[in-house]
Amino acid sequence: MAFTHTERRLHQMMFADRDYERKPILQLSGDCPVVTVQNWAERGYSVVNVQCKDRTKLLFDVVCTLTDMQYVVYHATIDTAGDGASLEFCIRHTDGTPISSEAERQRVIQCLQAAIERRASEGVRLELCTADRQGLLADVTRTFRENGLNVTRAEVSTARDMAHNVFYVTDAAGNPADTKIIEAVREKIGLGNLKVKELPLIYHQKEERDEQAVGVGGAVLLSLGSLVRRNLYNLGLIRSYS
Rank of each mutant, 00 (worst) to 15 (best):
Asp178Lys: 09
Val220Asp: 07
Ala159Asp: 15
Met162Ala: 08
Glu122Asp: 11
Tyr168Asn: 09
Lys180Phe: 10
Ala131Cys: 05
Arg125Gln: 09
Ile189Leu: 15
Asp210Ser: 06
Ala177Asn: 05
His164Met: 08
Leu149Arg: 02
Ala219Asn: 15
Glu146Gln: 13
Val140Met: 04
Ala131Trp: 07
Glu211Ala: 11
Ile182Ser: 10
Ala172Gly: 04
Asn193Cys: 13
Asp178Leu: 05
Ile202Asn: 07
Pro200Ala: 10
Gly123Ala: 05
Glu207Asp: 08
Lys197Gly: 15
Ala177Gly: 05
Tyr203Phe: 15
Ala173His: 06
Ile181Ala: 12
Asn150Trp: 13
Cys129Lys: 06
Thr170Glu: 04
Thr158Asn: 15
Thr179Phe: 14
Ala163Glu: 02
Ala213Trp: 07
Glu207Gln: 12
Val185Arg: 02
Gly135Arg: 02
Glu127Asp: 11
Asn147Cys: 11
Asn147Lys: 09
Asp178Pro: 00
Gln205Leu: 12
Leu128Trp: 00
Val216Tyr: 14
Phe167Leu: 02
Leu191Pro: 04
Glu122Arg: 13
Val156Gln: 03
Ala213Phe: 07
Leu149Val: 07
Ser121Arg: 11
Gly192Glu: 12
Arg209Thr: 01
Phe167Val: 00
Glu208Ala: 13
Gly215Thr: 08
Thr179Gln: 12
Glu207Leu: 13
Lys206Arg: 14
Leu201Asn: 13
Leu191Tyr: 14
Asn147Trp: 11
Pro176Thr: 10
Asp161Ser: 13
Thr170Gln: 03
Glu122Ile: 04
Val166Pro: 00
Pro200Thr: 08
Cys129Gly: 06
Thr158Gln: 15
Asp178Cys: 13
Lys197Ile: 12
Lys197Asp: 13
Leu137Cys: 09
Arg153Asp: 14
Leu194Ile: 03
Ala219Glu: 14
Arg125Lys: 11
Phe144Val: 00
Lys206Glu: 12
Ala163Gly: 01
Tyr168Thr: 05
Leu221Gly: 05
Ile202Met: 13
Val214Ala: 10
Ser121Ala: 09
Thr179Gly: 06
Lys188Tyr: 07
Lys180Gln: 15
Leu199Met: 12
Asn147Met: 12
Asn165Gln: 05
Ala213Val: 01
Ala173Val: 04
Lys206Trp: 12
Lys206Phe: 12
Ile189Phe: 09
Leu126Tyr: 04
Leu221Cys: 15
Val169Met: 02
Glu183Asn: 10
Val124Asn: 02
Gly174Ala: 02
Leu128Ile: 01
Glu127Ser: 09
Val196Thr: 15
Ala177Ser: 08
Ala213Glu: 08
Arg153Asn: 14
Ala213Asp: 07
Tyr168Ile: 01
Val166Tyr: 03
Ala163Val: 01
Val140Pro: 00
Ala159Val: 15
Asn147Gln: 11
Gly123Asn: 04
Asn175Cys: 14
Pro200Tyr: 09
Thr158Lys: 09
Met162His: 08
Ala184Pro: 03
Phe144Arg: 02
Thr152Met: 08
Leu201Pro: 04
Thr141Ala: 03
Lys197Cys: 14
Gly148Ala: 03
Met162Pro: 00
Gln212Met: 08
Ala177Asp: 04
Leu194Asn: 00
Gly215Asn: 11
Tyr203Gln: 03
Phe144Ala: 00
Ala131Asp: 07
Glu211Val: 06
Val166His: 01
Leu126Gly: 00
Leu222Asn: 10
Ser121Gln: 06
Arg160Lys: 14
Ala163Asn: 00
